[in-house]
């Protein structure tokens, strides 16, 4: 248990280090970095590499945004097996729908309750 927590912490942290390097060294914007991480997760799953990564790192692999890309591909492939080409379209959001809906719903709640203001670092 303790060992898997430590592995998750270190691996998840390393994924974030890659993101930070994309900001600071490659000078990518947050939007570009986010998209790139999603695409990387998606491509890795396409080659069947993300599942072993989750088996190894657990939350260290499922919490970073790369896991969202993994879920997109995963859902698409799963549904494609059952329903053919149309399954690619329906499956993409099947696994990820809870994440997307949660983002929208909590976003709306926050927007109703709070007023945005500048963030002093």
């Amino acid at each position: 248990m303790i060992v898997s927590v430590i592995i998750a912490f270190i691996v998840g942290g390393l994924v974030c280090v890659i993101g930070q390097l994309l900001f600071d060294v490659a000078k990518l914007t947050p939007a570009h970095t986010l998209s790139l991480m999603v695409v990387i997760g998606s491509v890795l799953d396409g080659f069947g590499l993300y599942e072993p990564f989750i088996d190894f790192a657990g939350a260290g692999a499922t919490i970073p945004i790369t896991s969202f890309g993994n879920s997109l591909t995963h859902g698409a492939l799963q549904e494609a097996e059952k329903h053919g080409f149309i399954g690619v379209l329906t499956g993409m959001f099947e696994v990820t729908s809870s994440g997307i809906s949660a983002a929208i719903i909590f976003g709306v709640i926050a927007a109703i309750l709070f007023k945005s203001k500048g963030k002093v670092s």
């Binding site: 600071d24 947050p30 945005s116 203001k117 500048g118 963030k119 670092s121």
Partner: peptide, 20 residues
């Protein structure tokens, strides 16, 4: 005005992006 300008030139205020 801070918010009006930052949201146009940088990121949405709600986003709370960190600056270098």
């Amino acid at each position: 005005q801070h918010n009006a300008v930052e949201r146009q030139f940088r990121y949405p205020i709600e986003y709370g992006a960190q600056k270098p």
